[in-house]
Nucleic acid binder design. Structure first.
Lengths: 189, 189, 189, 189
DNA sequence: GGCTAACCGAGACGGTACGTCCAGTCTTCGT
DNA sequence: ACGAAGACTGGACGTACCGTCTCGGTTAGCC
């Protein structure tokens, strides 16, 4: 069932190897050394096949970021807000700083500083969903009465994850459990 | 004081027009469209003159970021911690999001996601000083007894400024005074 | 009589529209801008349909040159050698320089300078016949005793038509009747 | 005295190796397989250096044709028209059909069938001079009284060289001395 | 007051990657 | 069985910048 160049439309085989090659090369050589020609060569694909489906290397990366992001970062539901947050934020910090998908995210966020259109797509296609996942423990806590009903959950999310993103993207400092605990105390008491 | 061809060392005139051109072009066309050739043309300078003094365009920007950063972001000393922080954090948010120097900072931070050496220089030459300025109100509060002596001020700084950087660099959401107040309440009670 | 997707052998409709498209495009845009894709699009035909029947664009043109060449350039038989030649050579010159088929011939001859196989086919499939037609008046003159029996007619043909091809292909100068007369005098007295 | 990239202007070294590479590759692989990239690689030169000075590969070839053409084809001056022509036309035929410069000429003439601008340049920069050389023996014969004063020398030149070009460019037949003699007899008695 | 060192502009150079175009092949569906 | 459609690999196109280089011109500061 591998369609290569026919009227069924695009080759899933080529698509996979391109995304894989982009991911690998980003991790190996970094965003600046990531080129369309390099991806094509590594993927064993013609350059035109990449350009046919993606306008630029950032679009390939946006696609490569794809489902990984969505699936990996679902917070647990232990029934206790602080436990949920402790686990989720630690996972988030580790994911952003050390996973391959995290590397792609950092690269795209970096590029988004120079490219407003990319910034918009990154927010629409990934950040929104991620923030929804980040909110889940807080929403459940409101339902359980652990948090007051009128809380501004978006602001709470920012106060919880903002310092983590800051350390990962800006200062490069690690995010130990104690720091996560302090964040939680500051945000939800 | 215009040295064109002399034995007194580099031309201050050329230096200024290069930094100016880099700054302007960054704001006008963005980091990706900022090229050494473009800077040279705009500055009316030979490419070699740029390469003689700066290894890359990020180094020019690091230099252009220069003293502005240092001078502009000194927190006030009102004698009351919360007032100091309110003013300083609001100023910081505005500066990062809307000033020309903020644009340079965002561009460099973006590039630092792909360039570890740049990340290191950016931290050493700018972030460290900025964080020191961010700490000042907290240090004075400790001296005044407003904060307990053993507080981890670095962690407090991260909890105060982290969400601001997060909004500026990642979500693009604005930083209204109410959000700053919530940050302050969460961090220093 | 329109076969589109059938089991009756190739579509004469497609064949005609391809040859027609090739001819038109050659005249409109020139050989260099003539592409297989362009022919396919203009003819409303899939590229593969062209490749199924012709290996290259020059083969399409060889085919397009087709029967036109053969039919159009038969010399008259007035019974007088010089009259036959005068009419035939003037017609030949006009045909080569100004007709659509002449444009195809010039293009193929040009391409044959870079492609020995094409040169061979062009000679075998067109030039040989054309030279046979060019010889006809001479052969009839030998039969009538207007020319001596041992004459090398091939050399005579070259001396008659060579300068015409030279003007058309190389210098671009016109071929007026006086020049044709001079040619005839030089070749057959 | 080899200037590589300085304000003296272009590198003569690069110019020579490009022309040489173009010439060699044309002879080795033919016009169709001659590419700008191939020339650049063979010449050990950047593509941009070729494009800086020549708009297309035909312009490189026009330049490569250069002085060779001019120098090599000067007719002798024996004092006897028929001897001059016999030697010159034999030389011309051999040159066109068998020399490297002849291969370049044939390729350019072929390409000129598809490119009117090239045809114009080829005539202006090479054919005109060559025809002037071809006329020389005739002009000297007029001065000596070997030919009548009113002769149309241009037409005579065409009748002498036309069949030779025709054989070289169109039929591919050889040009033996007997054919040259017949040409001379037909044109100048 | 000419010499000379240091810096300047200009711009050609060898390279790398860009994004586009077309060649020629292949696979499927519909007629 | 054939034609239309169109995705595929491959390779050259012509362009934009990269970072390096060599040169001639200008201007102190020194003999």
């Amino acid at each position: 069932m591998s369609h290569r160049g026919n009227r069924h439309g695009r080759s899933e085989e080529a698509r996979q190897s391109i995304l894989r090659a982009a991911d690998d090369l980003l991790v190996e050589k970094g965003f600046a050394q990531l080129t369309m020609e390099g991806i094509a060569t590594r993927a064993g694909v013609a350059k035109q096949t990449i350009y046919r489906w993606w306008p630029s290397k950032t679009d390939v990366l946006l696609d490569a970021l794809g489902t990984d992001y969505a699936e990996d970062l679902n917070p647990p539901d232990t029934g206790a807000l602080r436990d949920d947050l402790r686990a989720h934020l630690a996972h988030l910090a580790d994911y952003l700083a050390h996973s391959d998908a995290g590397a792609v995210f950092r690269a795209l966020t970096g590029q988004a500083q120079h490219d407003a259109a990319l910034a918009a797509r990154l927010r629409a296609e990934h950040l929104t969903q991620q923030r929804a996942r980040d909110r889940l423990p807080l929403e459940r806590a409101v339902e359980r009465g652990e948090l007051p009903a009128g809380s501004d959950l978006d602001d709470l999310v920012d106060r919880l994850v903002g310092p983590i993103y800051y350390r990962v993207l800006v200062t490069g400092r690690p995010v130990p459990p104690e720091f996560v605990d302090a964040l939680i105390r500051g945000a939800v008491g």
